[in-house]
C-alpha cells in the first residue's frame, strides 16, 4: 500500500483521504495514519504547490557554485548552510564543472544578484559562482505548463 499511496500523493497532493481509501480499498483513518507515519519518518518531506508564475512577480535564477573543500569542511557544510536561506528553493550537490546547484528566488534581478553576491559568494569555501536567470518554464516537477487536458476520444466506442 505504501508505494501506491506515495505514487497517488505525488501525482496529486490534494487528493482526499476518503478518495485514497476508496482507491486503495481501505479506510480514511488508516490512510491518515499512514500519511502521518510517512511525514514523521521523513519519507514525505512536504507537499508543494506549483504556480504558473513564469517570472511575472518573481525572478528565478540557477546559481552554479564552485566550492573548495578543506579538512573537516566537506560539501555538506556549505550545502547545508546555503540551504537554510529562504531565498534558496532547491540546493543540490552535483557532479561536473561545478559543485552545488542552487535555485534562487527573489523579487527582482537586483534582489537575486545581491543575494548571490552578499550571501553566497562571500562564503570562505566558495571559489566562484555563475548565475543564470530563468526566462521561461516549460515543465516543473513533471507538470507541463500550459498543457490543456482534454479528452479527445469518442464518448462511446466498441
Amino acid at each position: 500500500m505504501k508505494q501506491k499511496l506515495l505514487a497517488l500523493l505525488t501525482k496529486n497532493p490534494r487528493i482526499s483521504a476518503s478518495s485514497l481509501a476508496k482507491i486503495l480499498g481501505t479506510t480514511a483513518a488508516k490512510i491518515e495514519a499512514e500519511i502521518q507515519k510517512l511525514l514523521k519518518s521523513g519519507e514525505i518531506v512536504g507537499f508543494a504547490t506549483i504556480l504558473n508564475s513564469n517570472g511575472q512577480d518573481e525572478i528565478t535564477a540557477m546559481v552554479e557554485v564552485r566550492v573548495t573543500t578543506q579538512r573537516g569542511r566537506g560539501f555538506d557544510e556549505v550545502g547545508e548552510r546555503l540551504a537554510k536561506f529562504p531565498e534558496v528553493v532547491n540546493a543540490f550537490l552535483i557532479s561536473g564543472s561545478h559543485d552545488l546547484n542552487l535555485l534562487v528566488k527573489g523579487k527582482s534581478l537586483a534582489d537575486v544578484a545581491n543575494f548571490v553576491n552578499r550571501k553566497v559568494a562571500v562564503l570562505e569555501s566558495v571559489t566562484g559562482t555563475t548565475t543564470h536567470f530563468l526566462l521561461k518554464k516549460y515543465k516543473e516537477d513533471g507538470l507541463i505548463f500550459g498543457e490543456k487536458v482534454s479528452d479527445q476520444r469518442l464518448k462511446v466506442s466498441a
Partner: peptide, 16 residues
C-alpha cells in the same frame, strides 16, 4: 453513441 452524444457533460465509461 448517438444517444450519449445528445447529452453533453456525461462521464463516459463507454470508451473502448
Amino acid at each position: 453513441f448517438e444517444i450519449v452524444a445528445e447529452n453533453p457533460d456525461v462521464i463516459s465509461l463507454s470508451v473502448g
